[in-house]
Simulated assay, not measured.
Amino acid sequence: MQLSKGFEVEMYTGTPQGDIVGLSDQIVAALDGFVREPDSRNVEYTTAPLCNYERLLCALVSPRRRLRKYLHRLGDFTILPGSTLSLGDSHKFHRSDPGNAYHTYIEQTYGTRVVTASIHINIGISDPDVLMRACRLVRVEAPLYLALSASSPFLDGAVTGYHSTRWGLFPATPTHVPLFESHAHFIQWTHEQLAAGTMQNVRHLWSSVRPNGDRRPYNLNRLELRICDLMVDPLALLAVTALLEARLWMLLQDPLLDPLTASSLPTATRGEDLLDITQANEAAVARQSLDAELHHWQDGRPILARDWIAQLYQECWPLAQQHGFSCFLSPVKKTSSRRQYGPALATAISAGS
Rank of each mutant, 00 (worst) to 15 (best):
L3F: 03
E10N: 07
T13D: 00
G14S: 07
T15Y: 11
T15R: 15
P16Q: 12
Q17T: 11
I20Q: 11
I20C: 06
G22W: 02
G22M: 06
L23N: 04
D25N: 15
I27V: 15
I27K: 12
A30D: 11
G33H: 05
P38W: 08
R41W: 03
N42W: 02
V43T: 14
V43P: 04
E44Y: 04
T47C: 09
A48L: 12
Y53W: 10
L57A: 09
A59V: 04
L60P: 07
V61R: 11
P63R: 05
P63L: 06
P63F: 07
R66F: 09
K69L: 02
Y70A: 09
F77S: 01
G82D: 02
S86A: 15
L87N: 13
L87Y: 10
D89W: 03
D89T: 02
S90C: 03
F93V: 15
H94K: 08
R95G: 07
R95C: 12
D97S: 14
A101F: 08
Y102T: 06
Y102C: 00
H103C: 01
G111R: 10
R113V: 07
V114L: 09
A117C: 15
A117K: 10
G124A: 09
D127F: 07
D127L: 03
D129A: 02
L131D: 13
A134P: 10
S149P: 12
S151N: 15
S152W: 04
S152E: 04
P153W: 05
F154Q: 03
A158N: 12
G161Y: 01
Y162D: 02
T165D: 12
A172Q: 04
A172N: 00
V177L: 11
F180V: 11
F180H: 14
E181C: 05
H183V: 08
Q188M: 03
Q188G: 00
E192P: 00
Q193G: 03
A195T: 07
A195S: 12
M199P: 08
Q200W: 10
Q200A: 10
Q200M: 10
N201D: 14
N201K: 06
R203P: 00
W206Q: 07
S208D: 06
V209D: 05
N212A: 15
N212R: 14
G213M: 11
D214L: 14
N219R: 14
I227M: 01
L230W: 10
M231C: 15
V232C: 11
V232K: 07
A239F: 00
L243T: 06
L243N: 06
L248N: 07
W249A: 00
M250Y: 00
L251I: 09
L257V: 07
L260C: 11
T261R: 04
S264D: 11
L265C: 05
A268G: 00
G271T: 10
L275N: 00
D276Y: 08
I277S: 04
Q279P: 03
N281W: 04
E282P: 00
A283N: 02
D291E: 13
D291T: 05
E293M: 12
W297Q: 01
Q298A: 13
Q298T: 15
D299Q: 03
R301S: 13
R301P: 00
I309H: 12
A310T: 08
Y313E: 02
W317G: 00
P318W: 09
Q321W: 00
K334W: 03
T335C: 09
S336L: 15
G342C: 08
G342K: 07
P343S: 13
P343T: 12
A351I: 01
G352M: 11
S353H: 12
